[in-house]
Design a protein around this nucleic acid. Structure first.
Lengths: 340, 340
DNA sequence: CAATGGTTTGCACGCGCGTGCAACATTGGG
DNA sequence: CCCAATGTTGCACGCGCGTGCAAACCATTG
């Protein structure tokens, strides 16, 4: 391969080497274009020799699709988010799209500037996994012909496509699970993050308990994570009456909670304490936790997204919000039967 | 904001609304261009009203920088990789770059096609976190003016920039740690993945033991992950003589190992068994594991990368490989003193 | 008022590519 | 041998934007 001086090879150079017009080169790399087999071979050979690669940026300039999809996400190192990105990137690639990941973590107004970036790069679609963009920003994206997909942002805006898991159903189910296990002193561990999805789980659980005539304390002492779960446990078990059943709105919270309950307060799970989490992250299946939880069907969700994006015409007429059923995963952190 | 019909706003429309030339609009959004304050205001107002956003794709077409950086990575949901992506995306954004994540997981020849995508999108740089691209592919990228940065791919190719942590040093250190703890029957748990970095840790540890006159068995029963660690422990503790010290080339392996040793074989850590991991993923600090391990200075690494990319002129004269020192993290999975 | 220097503006071109259109080559049938 | 039909090729234009260049404008000074 010829060594060139710090610059990408353009179609014109390939054309010159192959002894054809630039159009011929362009057509060779365009599906369904009319090129004879001989020139095609010549072009491919020349392209290979020069190390030519079609400039997708320039191609997207006239063609209305950039094949770029933006993922807006924060706390990427979180197991749940990481898994989401893993699946999303794979599925997107399988339909010829490519993922731009915009980390909305640190900076103030991170989501807003991220949304602007998506427009700057003419992304075909933007998938929001974290944060809540303002309606006006969403409107901008939509009016520019982008698809906007909100995942687990339960705000149910009418413009974009909403994808949610049925938190209310799952949280209600969780309550009855604990109740059937014979738990009498039940608590909820949530976070101060105020993510709509987590909030929904929290209030649904409390509501289910209330309807059952039980008043359930809610513990929220920090952001969504292991450390907050620890802190919650310390407060819960530092009281006079200690819980025998806990619903955590996130697996990470549950694990922090469980570790402190066991190691600092000598509780045994599930004999003295039943715990339920949410998300079914990898660690939930680890021996030390063996956590009963609810799995979000991320595969199905990703499949659905991909199907949405693959469809050329956007079916805006259809209901803009699609909901998925969380799958209960029975493990060992909930007592099988009530104690005698 | 005016509602438009599924298409991005272009500078010309802004110009018309603002009553200026398109150049004025362009200059308004270009740093260091000469525009009077009044036209600037007019343009900004019009842009705001129309929802105009500069097309970075078109901009990058003539300007030699696309500000796109590709991250090649597999197994994104792994804590280590996730953290790497988290930090990388943040730091890249802080210098005005944007990250394209290419998941090289599934598909055969994934790395090769990923490298090609990199060129297709005219990425300024490509950062390889997983897999080992062929030298010819790397050469293609380099000759196109892209920067290629290989992380922990210890192949030490001469073209691209190599970033490594000193695995040999750390593994040797790990051996002496176990030795000082009084461990006499030491084993290594590795994986069948054959990643250069992991292999380096493995052989360095074995070599350190050999020089100390100790023959150390190496267990590799599957890919790098928790389950493989479990399997390794089952085999190690199913033997007649069982280890009292284990070095795992990855935290995940260590955790699987520890869980099985404790729960299936009743070993107590660190009294009967000392374990050392590598990476210092979040979970290593969790109470259930409290794992002694080596932290990769991901922050420093990312800073270094960012500095490389920010420098306009690439200092190819300098040594193309930069190495970082892993930081020992002392926790509770290694016995503090040898038993009497 | 004229001359001068500095600032701002518009024009026009190029970035790399896809594609409509017309010219061209090829082939088969009459 | 001629004509039509089919297939292929090249030209030229446009995609949205940045920028060099020269014209136009403005303020300041002599």
């Amino acid at each position: 391969m010829e060594v060139r001086e710090r610059s990408f090879v353009k179609a014109e150079e390939v054309a010159k080497l192959a002894g054809v017009s630039r159009s011929a080169v362009s057509r060779t790399f365009t599906d369904g274009a009319s090129v004879s087999e001989v020139t095609r071979k010549k072009v491919l050979a020349a392209a290979e020799a020069l190390g030519y690669h079609v400039n997708h940026l320039a191609r997207g300039l006239s063609h209305e699709r950039s094949n770029i999809v933006c993922l807006l996400v924060s706390d990427i190192s979180t197991p749940y988010q990481a898994r989401m990105i893993d699946i999303a990137t794979q599925k997107l690639q399988s339909i010829g799209k490519i993922a731009m990941v915009i980390n909305t973590t640190g900076e103030p107004e991170g989501v807003a500037s991220a949304m602007r970036q998506t427009v700057n790069y003419r992304a075909d679609a933007v998938i929001v996994l974290s944060g809540t963009p303002s309606p006006s920003l969403i409107a901008t994206c939509l009016s520019n012909g982008q698809r906007v997909i909100l995942i687990n942002r339960d705000d149910q805006l009418s413009g974009p496509t909403n994808i949610v898991v049925e938190n209310t159903f799952a949280a209600t189910e969780a309550y009855h699970l604990l109740k059937r296990a014979g738990c009498a002193r039940i608590a909820v561990v949530s976070s101060t993050a105020g993510t709509p999805s987590l909030k929904a789980r929290e209030v649904a659980f409390v509501e289910a308990a209330r309807q059952d005539g039980l008043d359930v304390p809610v513990m929220q002492t920090g952001p969504t994570g292991y450390a907050t779960g620890m802190e919650a446990a310390r407060r819960l078990f530092g009281r006079a009456v200690t819980p025998d059943g806990i619903f955590c709105v996130t697996d990470l919270l549950a694990m922090g909670c469980m570790d402190v309950a066991r190691n600092e307060f000598g509780m045994s799970v599930p004999d003295e304490l039943s715990i339920i989490g949410f998300d079914d992250i990898d660690q939930a299946a680890w021996m030390s936790y063996n956590l009963t939880t609810f799995r979000q069907p991320l595969d199905s969700i990703a499949d659905h997204i991909v199907r949405l994006l693959a469809a050329e015409t956007l079916p805006q007429a259809k209901s803009p919000t699609k909901s998925f059923q969380p799958i209960p995963v029975w493990r060992g952190s909930v007592r099988p039967r009530p104690p005698r």
